[in-house]
Design a protein around this nucleic acid. Structure first.
Lengths: 207, 207, 207, 207
DNA sequence: CATGAATGAGGGTTCATTCAT
DNA sequence: CATGAATGAACCCTCATTCAT
């Protein structure tokens, strides 16, 4: 069984210079991933773009994997910020409003950095450890399921886990595909229509 | 504008030795993709596993890309066989039956070779030429849209294109995620439940 | 001491088909050498261009070396044909006429196929066995020396070998450089001027 | 239009370790060219002989071509040093002395490293960019022509360009052939005789 | 004799990672 | 800590040559 390369940063540097270096590295990695794809993202190139030496890169990250993981994590947190916000709002809303809010948030989240999102979703070799997308959807799933539990009187009785899976998976797929693959060919109205449809899909399903 | 590596086979060998070699290479590629992932699938390794020399590999394929494309194509054809069959049947069925048939077919299709399907869906750097999954869904989308057109009297008036997108994307996402990511933790009953739910999702959406 | 690859044709095929094949191969080699250079002249490409299989190529030539040697030989013979003719004529002429004839012949010879001549002179790895150019000049040298011997009363007494070396080497260099490197930038008059100058060079030297 | 491989070094390292590495690589290349010829000069072999890893080779040179170019450049500079010196001296001398000086210098230049000179002259596939030998002769030609201009009263009126071409080409050919091809069979006296003859050739031509 | 599929050594090149300075 | 020269395993790919059909 071959050892997987480490994916955690070496130091949690939180002091000035170090933190700046780490950030520069993560940022450089993200930009190169977007611009040139995973294959072209060599450590030397990343270090150069970050304005540090390769040596320094390895001072803060145990390898390439770790850098990509850091980028993924940073991006995920931004995404989840949006999703969490939406679901927090949604808690107090009637179902249709709630779902609409979530769908809109999903689109917004995918729009934070669609190109990076795409690269992370499509080009990054899975380490088997954390499944990128799945982690995200994992939390979303949990949050949404909590919502359902809290509002289960508004709709038919069902297996909440299954329902949450169906809803979250569908919303993710629709918004992901629309934003990541068709953003350029879709107008704002088209996106509004999509929100309507996705909302209808989920709401009627739950009723 | 970086040139994309070629993806077409070099010779269409369909007789005897040649054909056997080509098949062995495609098969070896598929097995290595499943076992070790895209990154580890080097031309030398593929040739070796196929019991063939690298030279022969390059006689028939201009590079790794082309082999992966061939694997994808072969797998796609198997998938589409199933989907086409289902949609042909569905044509004559009332909507609920039709959708249920399609969902079941989608699961069956994903089950042909879930591990390979996953690798192809997740790890293959897109060449930009044919977007793997998208091509599949492209045909499914077209077929399903045709079904909708033929049966548009059974449900509310809508933008058929949008509706087809919503349905196909959702069904694909649900069945894909279930089979590819959760196959081992899901019982047969769970899958039946999923079929019910996915069908409900789509049918109620369309009504 | 690494063995040098063989350079002789395998068979002196002088019957119809065989001879045609051999010719086609030599011709194809020459054309590819001119068009693409030595490095790109692979045996497979040669065979293909000649319209035969690689197998057949190896039936008639023991390897790539032998093919190039054959091309060289063929080209050399054409060259020497011209040079021999000129020196035969020259035998009966007074020195100035004789030299002029030789110089003109040298230009004519280089013009038979200047591109091929250049490739053979510049790109062919020397086998150490026959030194291409040297062989040519070797015969020319001998012939010219014979001329000098026959006409030694027309000029100062000298070491005929040395004189022949000086003359032949100079004429070869001047005509070679002019034709091979400057053909396109030189007018016909320029070539005539060159003949005058080269003749003067040699004649005054000998006097 | 096939792209020519790059021939410029990647870094101009002139300090310490770097410079030593670069020198070792150039030196190794030169030695291998002499010992085994151009074809056998693979990057791996060069690196090994230089006591350096292939990686380092590629850090400083974009490929084999560039290394050979570097060797050529180094050798050329040594040659031209000698030739320039001779022509500087010659400027103040009467024609016969001047020519004799140049001829002697040409021999000396070819003797710097005859074997390397031969390989560079005969085996290096021309990149089309700088024509190796031609560049050398180009400068010599210019310098010699300048001499002729300054001394044009000492001889018949002529097309100076043509005259310079004839003289430089002849001297180069004679000394090159003598040193490179016949060094071992020629005594010192023979070389002196050659100087006499070459001088006579050129001087009488110019008169 | 002809064919062309198959071979595999070997060449060019990159890049993650280390380590002396 | 920072640097960046050095490393070398591993890749991709070509092509001279062989040999079963």
């Amino acid at each position: 069984m071959p050892r997987k390369p480490p994916t955690k940063p070496r130091k949690y540097a939180s002091q000035g210079r170090s933190r700046a270096t780490v950030d520069a590295l993560i940022e450089a990695t993200a930009r190169i991933l977007v611009r040139d794809g995973f294959d072209k993202a060599s450590t030397n190139r990343i270090a150069e773009k970050a304005g540090v030496s390769v040596g320094s890169l390895y001072q803060y990250f145990p390898g390439k994997e770790a850098l990509v993981t850091a980028v993924t994590k940073r991006h995920s947190q931004e995404l989840m910020q949006v999703v969490r916000g939406a679901l927090a709002q949604a808690a107090a809303l009637p179902m249709e409003q709630a779902v609409r809010t979530l769908v809109a948030a999903a689109i917004e989240a995918h729009r934070i950095d669609p190109k990076l999102h795409r690269v992370l979703a499509e080009q990054i070799p899975r380490t088997g450890r954390l499944e990128n997308t799945e982690v995200l959807n994992g939390e979303t799933y949990a949050l949404f399921r909590a919502y359902l539990e809290a509002h289960c009187d508004e709709f038919r009785t069902v297996d909440l886990g299954l329902a949450a899976f169906v809803c979250v998976t569908s919303i993710e797929a629709l918004t992901h595909t629309a934003v990541v693959h068709h953003s350029e060919s879709l107008s704002d109205e088209a996106f509004e229509a999509l929100v309507d449809e996705a909302t209808r899909l989920v709401v009627r399903y739950l009723q």
